[in-house]
């Protein structure tokens, strides 16, 4: 691979798309585990969280995941800065024509999601991993971090619930464009399958946004 490979705009887009689609698969796994917290006992959730936090394969995968986030964010920023630079003088009347409405706000939704991510990490991930601010609970005679209790406690706060839901609606917007756009960047556009991919994109964005948002709602109101 020559120098031009790493620098070409198409390659950057390819990497962006690949990382983005990979992150979506992670979101589904994450959502699956999160939904466990709604079971009558938080044990299953805590066990799953423990597994995710300690299994060696998952730990390796965690590095890949962070790499995915990092690349998606860095490449996104580089591309965005280049895009701004490509039009130093803005239009007086900005263009409104676009067939993918959320695509215009990808950087904006991205920034909000990033802020959420940082808060989220501080609240749960780092707490459990490094700061040790999480209580322990015994399940089947073994000690586990009681993340389930932490979640239940957090979602009693209305501000937290709203913030959480807003973040996931924004993520939905991001994915509504991102999912199908990723296929286009990978060169996968076909008259037969692209309409399906676009519908799937809508479905994915709704399922993830609703799937994540339902958790705080159920907890808060129950």
């Amino acid at each position: 691979m020559g120098k031009s490979f790493t620098q070409s705009s198409l390659t950057k887009k390819f990497v962006m798309a690949f990382a983005g689609l990979f992150l979506i698969t992670f979101l589904f796994v994450h959502m699956g585990i999160n939904l466990l917290v709604l079971l009558p006992s938080t044990d299953a959730f805590n066990i799953a969280a423990h597994f995710m936090g300690t299994n060696i394969l998952i730990k390796v995968f965690e590095v890949v995941l962070f790499g995915g986030f990092f690349i998606h964010i860095i490449y996104g920023l580089i591309l965005q800065v280049q895009n701004w630079m490509a039009r130093p003088n803005r239009y007086k009347v900005e263009g409104w024509s676009h067939t993918s409405p959320f695509s215009k706000f990808m950087i904006h939704t991205a920034v909000i999601i990033f802020i959420f991510l940082v808060i989220h990490m501080a609240d749960f991930y780092f707490k459990a991993k490094f700061f040790g601010g999480v209580d322990e609970v015994m399940i089947d005679g073994k000690p586990y971090h009681d993340l389930g209790a932490l979640v239940l406690a957090k979602f009693q706060m209305i501000g937290f619930v709203i913030g959480y839901i807003v973040a996931f609606i924004i993520l939905g917007f991001h994915l509504h464009h991102g999912f199908q756009s990723g296929f286009q960047s990978l060169g996968l556009n076909h008259s037969k399958y692209t309409p399906l991919i676009k519908s799937l994109s809508t479905l994915v964005s709704i399922v993830l946004a609703v799937g994540f948002s339902i958790i705080p709602l159920v907890i808060y109101f129950s």
Partner: peptide
């Protein structure tokens, strides 16, 4: 790329 055009974000305003 060299000429300084921006990158595609698959917004499809071009097609429209």
């Amino acid at each position: 790329d060299e000429l300084g055009f921006g990158n595609c974000t698959n917004t499809y305003a071009c097609e429209a």
